[in-house]
Design a protein around this nucleic acid. Structure first.
Lengths: 177, 177
DNA sequence: CTCCTAAAGCAAAGGTCTTTGCGTTACGCT
DNA sequence: AGCGTAACGCAAAGACCTTTGCTTTAGGAG
């Protein structure tokens, strides 16, 4: 009655890696919308059935890829200067979504959003709160409305406006000098 | 060599209306993601071919519907009090996206965004600039980052946080008393 | 090394979407 | 009212996606 022993190494790991790579290529080439499982499988040199059995559908697959693109365990800025840290973090996020692959994945994720917060964006918010430290000068709502919201909005609908000075402009608004 | 004469009345108008209605029903029932053209056609009592020929694909169809949900020719708030007008307008937008149908259409639209600003959101920005008047106290970027961005972000990813006091909170930030 | 079985591969069947050519309807102009 | 043709309906064909039962491969524990 115990849980079956998972097999994550060897072949499975290779399949996973080649599928992730194939997805990223295809999203770049045709946009997240037009990425189908048979297409991914062929590009990855893998049987479509394997993809269906692991992820179920294309939306779940894309979401899985998106989650791992910006490492949730990476080192966060912590110079001690709150304002500088916030700017540095915002810059990372902007930089991230400036890559067409990540913006495309974000759009794909947004299509299936609404029920619950996506893993990927929950990570962003958690990071912001870590940077704020305790006691926090800003609460979660201020981060969302002041930093994450505008960046994500632009990433989805106005990707060509993700300028270098956007992070500073946004932080200036939420943290008046 | 002149453009063919369009026929927009009578039957065509009826088809258009029943398709729009069918799309809205289906988006509410299953989410924009799972709305297909054959499904819409059946519900509307129309031949799928007609839908394919007019819109081409489901994304274009959804975008068309979304554009006409918030009437671009409606009366805008103009009490003379800039702050009050901005709040009233933001309230309209929040109210709009609080309806699940509109949020779902927004998500559908975001999936195919990226190339150029969508008609629907271009309208929102134009409205904001009209409210601002001349000379404008805020520029387009401030409206986007301060009002539209946060509202749309929440509408897509955190629809249950579109509170009544959000408009006031946002306007307070961009228009310090 | 051997065994057990999780995970991948294969093939066939079923389903849904999309395209296309052609006939029919009826809008809009004269 | 009559005419030309835009827009719709119909049906068949094809493409593509998805599911399912079974076989084969190979990860991981002993």
């Amino acid at each position: 009655m115990s849980a079956p022993v998972r097999r994550t190494g060897g072949r499975s790991a290779a399949v996973l890696a080649s599928i992730r790579y194939a997805v990223e290529e295809l999203v770049r080439e045709r946009g997240a919308e037009k990425v189908t499982i048979p297409l991914v499988a062929e590009r990855a040199g893998v049987n479509p059935t394997s993809v269906y059995r692991r992820w179920g559908d294309a939306a779940a697959l894309l979401n899985d890829i998106a989650t791992y693109r910006l490492d949730p365990d990476r080192e966060l800025p912590h110079s001690g200067d709150l304002r500088a840290d916030l700017i540095a973090w915002a810059r990372e996020v902007v930089e991230h979504y400036r890559k067409p692959i990540n913006a495309a994945l974000l759009r794909g994720g947004s299509a299936s959003a609404g029920e619950q917060e996506t893993e990927c964006l929950r990570n962003r918010r958690a990071e912001a709160l870590v940077i704020m430290g305790e006691p926090a000068a800003l609460d979660a709502d201020e981060i969302i409305d002041g930093i994450v919201g505008p960046i994500v909005y632009r990433a989805i609908f106005l990707p060509w406006t993700l300028d270098d000075d956007l992070p500073v402009r946004l932080v200036d608004k939420v943290l008046p000098a």
